[in-house]
Computed example of a mutant assay.
Amino acid sequence: MTISNEVLQRVRATASYQDWVVTAPQLESAGADRNTVRRMLRSGRLVPLTRGSYWVGQDDQGPSLRSRVRGALLTCGPQVVAAGPTAARLLGIEGLPEDDGTLHLAAPPGHEIRSRPGIHVRRTTLSPTSRMTLRGIPLTTPVHTCADLLLQLPRMEAVSMLDSALHQGLLTQPDLRRIPPLLSCRPNAPRARTWLSQADARAESPLETRVRLICLDGGLPPPVLQWHIPDPAQGCSYRIDLGWPTHLVGIEADGKAPHSTPQALYRDRSRQNRLSTLLPGLTLLRFTWPDTHHPPSILIPLRQALQLP
């Protein structure tokens, strides 16, 4: 038997408002009985997400994070929200460890939802000011999300996460002062509080944050972030990611995506040549992500350039 076009249209109409997700009751309301659902699953028109939710296939890459979160939340009621790394990724915060596919949710004590493979549930009572809605998906606010992650992440990732949230305007300096009370009486709170003072909104990428922390941990003078170099002749200015202007030493943190194309390599070379003209004697060092896994590869040439022991 074929699947009725009217049924398919009703299913897709419902899914289009929910990140292309539908629930089992919504399928039934659209006229899809159990046999129809089975045929839609076999044909790939439906992809199971969580118990009782399905993705209406729209992308060869599979369901997005939003779709997977929507599927989980549609089946467990309005008291449950996305939290932790999942909330951070929905907010666009960078610097997190690689996503292993687990959805992190927060539910009030006594709620029936339980952790299971692919879903981690934390029991907590959230105040109304600790939750928000982002394009239809309930989640913890940036302040609450960052507080939770400070307790869970290693230092490099934690400070990178804070830098990203500050740089994007998801957090403000006053917001940072609201985080310590959220850490009280929780595991790892003392160390997490000390990391708050290391956050800097000027960092434009997690790679810049990691290089900066390595420099500070290595005992080097604090660098200037986004060192501006004016170019009056061309009516513009350049920025060096991290720098020590009095020593004429700068660092460029070369992320793979922005600097890997031939066009980017040409622009980088032209830019570096211009900077050498504007600042004779400038030493500009370039570091990539693998360098941050071996700090001496950053600290040794940098100490030499700064003429430090």
Rank of each mutant, 00 (worst) to 15 (best):
A147F: 00
F287K: 04
A72C: 11
P181E: 10
L279G: 07
A199L: 01
R12C: 04
R186C: 05
P48N: 11
P190Y: 06
L183R: 01
E28Y: 08
P128C: 12
T141L: 04
G136I: 07
D254T: 11
R10M: 08
E252P: 01
A72S: 11
G243I: 13
P290L: 10
Y266L: 14
R202N: 09
P301T: 02
D148Y: 01
I251R: 03
F287Y: 12
A253S: 12
D19Y: 14
L284M: 13
T14W: 07
R42T: 11
L171Q: 01
A83I: 03
S205I: 03
A107V: 08
T209N: 09
D268G: 03
Q307H: 15
R135N: 14
S29D: 13
R135H: 14
Q9H: 11
T125K: 11
Q152I: 03
G57C: 09
A201K: 03
G57K: 14
F287M: 10
R271S: 10
T145M: 05
D268R: 08
T36C: 14
P309H: 04
S237W: 09
L302Q: 02
E157G: 02
P85Q: 12
A88G: 03
L65M: 10
R267L: 10
S53I: 07
A192E: 00
C185R: 15
R116G: 09
D254M: 09
G77P: 02
